[in-house]
Amino acid sequence: MHTAGTAGRSRGEGARVFRKGTRVLAGTMFAVFMLLVGPSAPSGALFVRSLPVDAVGEIVPNRVMTWNICNPCDVSNIDRAADIATYAPQVIGLQEACVRDVERIRNYLRSFYGLDYHVRYGTVLQDWGRCGGVPWNPGGFGQAVLSAAPMKDPVVVEYPDGGSEDRGYLAVTTTVGGRSVRVFNTHLAQRQQESFRAAQVGVLAEAVARHDRAIVLGDFNAVPDAPELGPLWELAEDTDSECRPEPTGPCEPTTDWHSKFDYVFLRGFAAREHRVQPTPYSDHHMLHTDVEPK
């Protein structure tokens, strides 16, 4: 027969076992969660970052941006969203984008910074290693376009040969500066794969040529005088007037390795001003430009 003290100790030990079991269960569930969300999940606690005093505060209707957000990288999507919110473009083209990351960035832009965007995805491969998920349902990887105005007629094209990794472009029709425009967002083959990029530019340029007004965003993995970019230079101009196949001045780099790889090609629009903004959250800088119709 248990005494009252013995019974109390038994209940206390039972409570401790219950609490320990609860902690073990919680730890197990957290481990499963981290396995499912994968390496694209932001690390650390969720802190809303304050914007700088010169942040624009609201969407700029004639501003477009391109940004390779770097993947896989151990970067918080809160920080990515804060960088975008600082300049608040009408249209943003993201490369190396996991669908889950873009969903979080979009939600943070709306919830924390009051910026509401529509989204379209240009997934070219399903990649568990880059984007998390589970082996039978990996995350989508490729391009994404965020637009303050609705988008229509989306087209996702995978290039016939991506090189060492599948590559393609996403095209949508939306509004920039009060005008309807076809927006393309692409990511070409890696740096040492010129012949693949040449074939990809041929496919892209053929689609761009069908439109009198087009904006082509992306990471082209090529400097301005690279021969493979020739077909695009015949159709459009980059937002940086000094970056040409024959430069007219110093061409501002857009990567941490001091190369110009990122472009905003304009067809039927002229650039009013542009800015290349380095960021600690990617090996590519943000490039944004304010445009006006020709």
Rank of each mutant, 00 (worst) to 15 (best):
R80P: 13
V64D: 02
Q90S: 15
N71T: 08
S76P: 03
R63P: 04
V75I: 14
D83K: 03
V75R: 13
R63S: 08
T86Y: 05
V64H: 08
E58S: 15
G57N: 05
D83V: 14
I59G: 04
C73Q: 12
G57M: 07
R63L: 04
N68Q: 02
V60T: 14
D79S: 11
M65T: 07
A88G: 14
V64N: 07
V91N: 04
T86W: 10
A88S: 15
N62R: 12
A81Q: 08
D83G: 15
P61I: 07
T86S: 12
A88W: 01
D83F: 08
C73N: 09
A85Y: 14
N77F: 05
I59F: 07
A82L: 10
V60C: 12
V56A: 12
I69A: 14
W67Q: 12
V75M: 06
P89Y: 04
I84W: 11
D79K: 13
E58Q: 14
N71Y: 01
I84E: 09
I78L: 11
C73P: 09
A81P: 10
D79L: 15
M65N: 06
N68T: 12
V60A: 09
D83P: 09
D79A: 14
M65G: 06
D79P: 01
M65W: 06
I84H: 12
Q90N: 15
N68E: 06
I84S: 00
I69P: 12
N77H: 08
A88H: 11
R80F: 09
A81F: 02
R80Y: 11
S76K: 11
R80V: 10
R63I: 01
M65C: 05
Y87P: 00
P72L: 04
C73T: 03
P61R: 03
I78H: 15
N68H: 08
V91S: 03
V64R: 12
T86P: 04
I59T: 03
V64Y: 06
A88M: 07
Y87N: 01
R80H: 05
A81S: 06
W67A: 03
T66F: 11
